[in-house]
Design a binder for these strands. Structure first.
Length: 454
RNA sequence: GUGGUUGUAGUUCAGUUGGUUAGAAUGCCUGAUUGUGGUUCAGGAGGUCGCCGGUUCGAGUCCGGUCUUCCACCCCA
């Protein structure tokens, strides 16, 4: 009995038209990564769960896809485990999982290959990741991340270069409606100290992060529930309402953080990063110091940033930050890293919504050769080889069909030119080239026509 | 994970208080045009109404479950 096939929730097929556009984004990002000195790396889709769990916070652990052990997966369990529930049973029946991001597997790779790696190590990685999230617009269960990370140096030049990459990628994609929010976990620590809730740092961050979503009043309400006094709320409110340039805002924060060593360190790092950006000739109009930026992933320790489109409703399209000790959990201390991740599925959705994909795509076949009958077909194969030797993307219609069908094929596939190869042309040595957009036709030798196309 | 929402030709959608043979547009195929597509005209094919079950003389329509879509939380690329 035939059944209708279906896809798992939150996954998609990408047809040729979509893949051409995805490749356009991917190729852009990849070429920029290479230009900045990053080298490629790939890691497996599956990792041991011991590598993945505990790196993304409790929420993250919940979103990991777990892979049932092969064979008799009940082998290591007892009836008692079942009684204790899913949480106790899960690690005994599933020891591997799909990777959740590219940063943690990268840290694992660095630790395992520390002997062969020359530091600072700059790598880029473009692969799918999986999250058992509930899908929504711009949120999928399988999606691609494009990461660039530098490990083995604490230099803020890296942060600035990653910002430069953001600037260059989106400039090349002709996408300008975005803003970069930048801050530092240390600034958040300073704010938490100011509010005297350093012991509830994580909760503090989560609440603060909601500011632009739920507003000042509700943030104040929630902050008071974790013990922020009304006096401190006033101080915080005044500080966060600071306006002005990035430098002016940093100055105001500096005054407020006089008693917070870590807070001041965060501000210094931000200032230095902005200096480096100036040195790199990166315009900072779209980069905004946003002290409420929190970022969920628990491994970040220093500067953090996030890119969001401004003219459409879309989540974060690029994000990252510095993590001082991600390799520490794998037994390699004292290696600082900083990275960035482009979410190409959301970039795709954004470009689509804003109609920013270029109309023509250089990956499309340039010329289709017709197929009228066996004799012309044999002749056409030679022409095909000749065109390809000149690096022209060419194909032949693989069977003798009605010309109408062949032209339709070219039309639907977006092929710009059709070369008629029939007895008339073979006899004269001059071929009819049809421009599918204008409908114009011209007659010339293959060499002359090839020159027109290449 | 919580709450809501969606599903009918390849696609986008109609389908009345439950009542004969489920429609349109578009796309596809054939012909008008034996070597000229994207325009026009004529004809044709295409549907287990997401899936499973229930109520009913009768279900695309009502009920339950399930899968999927989108949305709000949560969180995130």
């Amino acid at each position: 009995m035939a059944q209708k096939p279906s896809l798992p929730k939150g996954t998609r097929d990408f047809g040729p038209a979509q893949m051409l556009k995805r490749d356009y984004i991917l190729n852009t990002i990849r070429s920029v990564f290479k230009k900045y000195g990053f080298m490629p790396l790939e890691t497996p889709a599956i990792e041991n769960l011991s590598v993945l769990t505990g790196k993304y916070g409790d929420e993250g652990d919940q979103l990991l896809f777990r892979i049932l052990n092969t064979g008799d997966f009940l082998k290591k369990t007892s009836a008692g485990d079942y009684e204790e529930g899913a949480k106790a049973l899960s690690p005994k029946i599933a020891e591997k999982g799909l990777k959740y991001d590219l940063t943690v597997p990268f840290a694992r790779y660095v630790v395992m290959n520390r002997g062969e790696i020359t530091f600072p190590f700059k790598r880029y990685q473009i692969q799918p990741v999986w999250r058992a999230d509930r899908p929504q617009k711009g949120r999928y269960r399988e999606f691609y991340q494009c990461d660039a990370d530098v490990v083995g140096t604490g230099s803020l030049i890296c942060e600035a270069e990653l910002m430069a990459i953001v600037n260059e990628v989106y400039t090349q994609l002709n996408f300008n409606d975005y803003k970069v929010s930048i801050s530092s976990r240390k600034v958040l620590e300073g704010l938490a100290a100011l509010c005297e809730v350093s012991d509830k740092f994580t909760a503090f961050c989560v609440i603060l992060d909601k500011l632009d979503k739920i507003g000042e009043e509700r943030v104040a309400e929630e902050l008071s529930t974790i013990g922020v006094s009304s006096q401190n709320l006033e101080k915080l409110k005044e500080l966060l309402n600071t306006t002005g340039s990035n430098q002016e805002k940093l100055g105001t924060f500096r005054e407020a953080f006089v008693n917070s060593e870590v807070g001041l360190a965060g501000l210094d790092e931000l200032s230095e990063t902005f200096e480096h950006l100036k040195g790199l000739k990166v315009t900072t109009d779209q980069i905004i110091f946003d002290p409420t930026l929190a970022r969920g992933l628990s491994y970040y320790t220093g500067i953090i940033y996030e890119v969001k489109p401004t003219s459409i409703s879309m989540g974060t399209i690029t994000a990252g930050g510095r993590y001082d000790n991600l390799t520490g959990v794998f037994g390699m201390e004292g290696v600082s890293g900083v990275g960035i991740s482009f979410g190409i599925d959301r970039i795709y959705d954004s470009l689509e919504e804003l109609n920013l994909f270029p109309e023509t795509n250089s990956d499309i076949t340039q010329i289709l050769i017709t197929n009228f009958d066996k004799e012309s077909e044999a002749h056409a194969l030679g022409i095909l080889a000749k065109l390809r030797s000149k690096n022209i993307k060419a194909e032949i219609f693989p069977e003798a069909a009605k010309l109408k069908k062949q032209l339709n094929y070219a039309n639907n596939k977006g092929i710009a030119h059709v070369l008629m190869v029939g007895s008339r042309e073979i006899e004269s040595g001059e071929y009819v080239l049809k421009n599918m957009e204008t409908g114009d036709q011209q007659t010339a030798t293959i060499d002359a026509l090839a020159n027109l196309l290449s």
